[in-house]
Amino acid sequence: MLKILDLVQPESIDEAYKVLTESHKSAVLGGCAFLRMGSKTINTAIDLSKLDLNYIREDNDYIEIGAMATFRDIETHPALKEHFNGVLPKSVNNIIGVQFRNVVTVGASVFSKYGFSDLITALLALDTEVELYKGGRMPLAQFMEESLQKDILTKVFIKKTGRIASYQSLRNSSSDFPILNAAVSKLDNNWLVVVGARPTRAVIATNASEKLSNGEDISNSAKAAAEELSFAGNLRGSAEYRKAMCEVLVKRAATEVMQCR
């Protein structure tokens, strides 16, 4: 059972951060779907509800997603359906169900760098930046490499570069976690290949990306992705199977991108 001793609803992000760092065993509350499964005792829980972070908006250059926006918001937002071939809605719309997606939040999901994450894989294939209160604004890829620190993720920015993108995942039961997921995107001749749920966190397959960018054929590039990345086994699949599926999913995603002119 999750235990929360104190609960605060800061009026400003500074204050939220202050509580987070000053009090021992404090935690930011997202949608709580993950938090509730643990038996953690949180001394001070920080609720961001008063910080107006529940939004998705679009300007000329960016689509900006607040940390408290839900997966359902991503799924239904017109701009996200329209841009990048709708990869972001596609990446989340299989997760459990509508009422679940109305609960879970973007900030928690990205900040936690879950290995299985569908959203992170899709975001990594786009020109995505994250904003952290302390860490500042940085490319998502950079954030993914950094070690986890006490911080608050406030916003996600996706540059409207006009990338063409495709998202693929393989699941056994359709509401299960992915066995593997992949996203591929292309901006002019610049390709990005991302593979996640390996089952460790999503990464950019640099060789494969480079190969595609250099005009090599899709199957070779997909093979390269399977070769350059590491895979492990868990309940949902063995390392060997994941490696084989990496090639298939990357190939499919790249083919789809190639076909979108």
Binding site: N172, S173, S174, S175, D176, L235
Partner: peptide, 29 residues
């Protein structure tokens, strides 16, 4: 046939103790 499997670890711990790990068919399956 396709999804459900009560799985134990080597030491006898049940690995499928929730609907997150033990998947019954959903509507799409």
């Amino acid at each position: 046939a396709l999804y459900e499997d009560v799985k134990y670890g080597k030491k006898g711990g049940l690995q499928t103790n929730s609907f997150m790990t033990y998947k019954i068919p959903c509507r799409k399956d």
